[in-house]
Structure formats: C-alpha cells, structure tokens
Design a protein around this nucleic acid. Structure first.
Lengths: 147, 147
DNA sequence: AAAGATAGTTAGCTATAGCTAAGAAAGGGG
DNA sequence: CCCCTTTCTTAGCTATAGCTAACTATCTTT
C-alpha cells in the first residue's frame, strides 16, 4: 500500500497527464509545493513499486496499478470536497482539510458520506433545514471556546 | 504546534490521568501500541516543549498548556465519533477512521460537522429520511466498484 | 536487606519525506 | 553547432517517529 504522500504524487501525476498529456517533474513539484529533488526521489520509489514507469530525463507514466490507485484517490478527494461544499464549508478550508484527511477514510465511511451527499442533494427540504439550523446556531457557536 | 503524533500522546496521557489518577509509560505504550522506549522519547520531547512535566522514573503530569491541547484533541475526537455514529458507520470503522483524520480538520469544518450532528439529533425526521435513503441506495452501491 | 521481577531509559538503528547545493542532461537561440 | 537556460538528478543533510537491545531504577517478595 502506498503512503499518503505517495498517493498525493500519484493523484497529481494522473491529473497532469489528463490535463496536459504529460507530467513533468517541475509541474508535480510546484503543484505539491515541494522541491523538484523531492519529486525525483519519490518517482524513483514509485517506479520501484511499479506504480509509475519512470525513465530519468525522459518521461513519467502511470502503470495500470498506479493509475487505478490515482483514480480512487482522486475520487475520494472529490467526494470529500463535494460533501464539505454542500455543507457550506468555505473553499479554502475545504482544500486544506481534504488534503489532510483524504488518505484516512475507510471505503465504508466514504460510502456513508457519499450517501449523505446524495441525500442532501435529492432532498432540498432537508438541506434547507440544515442550513437554517446552522444559521440559528452560528452565533452561539462563535462565542463558545472549543466546542 | 504539536504534531499529530504528539497530540495522540497528550490525549492518552490526559485520559489515563482522568481514569486512573496517573499516567505510566507502560500504559501509554500499550494503549498507543508502541514500545515503551518510544514513549520515553516522546515524553522528553513534550517536556521540552512544556506540554508535560516529566521527571524520569517518577511521574508524568500535563502542564496547563498540554492539558488544554489534550482536551481539545479529545473533544475533536469525540465530535467525529459522534458524527460517524449518527450516520451509522460501524464501531470498528469509526475508531480506525477517527484516529486517522482527527488531526487534520479545521475548527470551521468541525463546527460544521458539529452542527450537522445537532441538526440530525434535533430533527429525527431528517435522520430517518437519511437512513431510509441510505437503505435504498445500499444495494446499488455495493455493486459499484470505486464509487 | 538482598534478589528477582517489573518498569523505565538510553543508545543506536530504521524508514519516510522533506530540504539545499552542486552538477548533468536537454532544448532553444544565435 | 555551441552556448545558455531550464529542467532534472544526485549526494548528503534534517526532523519525525518508530524499533531492538542493553542497561538502570524501582518495587516486591522473601
């Protein structure tokens, strides 16, 4: 099993290949906010684990296994984003939090959260009720330390 | 700011002191599933950061700052447990997932999830509707790879 | 009070994953 | 086609946080 950090790299490589057709060290580095030397190192590790095919100074591609992992990580990532968005968390916080937690949720928990999303999407009344509940509780919450 | 691992130690020390009146290296080690040498090492680090008061071979207490952190970590932990429980995630998965994600959520996201819990608690109709939604979508979900 | 058992500590090792600095490879402009 | 810039790689360092093995302190039991 890849580490959380390895998963991040796989996801970015996958996205870059989708978007631009290829993944360069420098682009991976800048989007993950690490130095390119760190990217090279991770690529060597991922190549060793047969998750990417890496020819130095040449190209980077995902193996079928690596791509499968990348897709499921991206999917998880997207699910969480969707949930926090529908619950009304602001964009910046969503990005920050999803980065942190996406590697740690069980498939069954994710399925549950996915169902929560579809429930709130398909039942606008419930969603409105939640937003209203949240609005009315907001002031109290803001004045309570460590709730 | 303490690392996620340091937070775990603080939380356990706090809980042990609450439960038994004192925290021993061996109990911290067994509950975190690490070796006692790892506990000693972390205690020295936490003492350095003034989060615990550690006298070797003697006792372990939390400083006010350490205790404040421990309480808020425990609180976060509890909030997440509560959410997953109300959503119907099974106990084993709850424990596993909460361990993984509790260190990574923003206060604002947590506030949002807290409101979701109180909403579902105070609106049994919505909760029932969600459970029903989940029940009817279950079969489809089980037969879908990587949703 | 001494001996043995339990608990705690230290030293030194591992792996992950970042960094900087230095240098090599590739690519584009003159 | 050679030079310069950009990109990439390597080497060697850091910190975190785990581990084992060896040792020390404390406690218990006789």
């Amino acid at each position: 099993m890849p580490t959380p950090s390895a998963e991040d790299y796989l996801e970015r490589i996958y996205e870059l290949i989708q978007q631009k057709g290829y993944a360069r060290v420098i682009d991976i580095a800048s989007s993950l906010k690490v130095q390119s030397s760190s990217v090279t190192k991770m690529l060597q590790k991922l190549d060793n684990e047969s998750l990417v095919k890496y020819e130095k100074y040449r190209g980077i591609t995902l193996t079928p296994h690596g791509e499968a992992i990348a897709q499921s990580v991206k999917n998880r990532h997207h699910k969480l984003e969707e949930l926090l968005k529908i619950l009304g968390v602001d964009e910046v916080t969503i990005q920050k939090d999803v980065e942190g937690i996406e590697h740690h949720l069980s498939p069954s928990t994710l399925a549950c959260l996915r169902d929560l999303v579809s429930f709130l999407q398909e039942d606008p009344h419930a969603l409105r009720a939640f937003k209203e509940h949240r609005r009315t509780h907001q002031q109290a919450a803001e004045n309570t330390a460590d709730n």
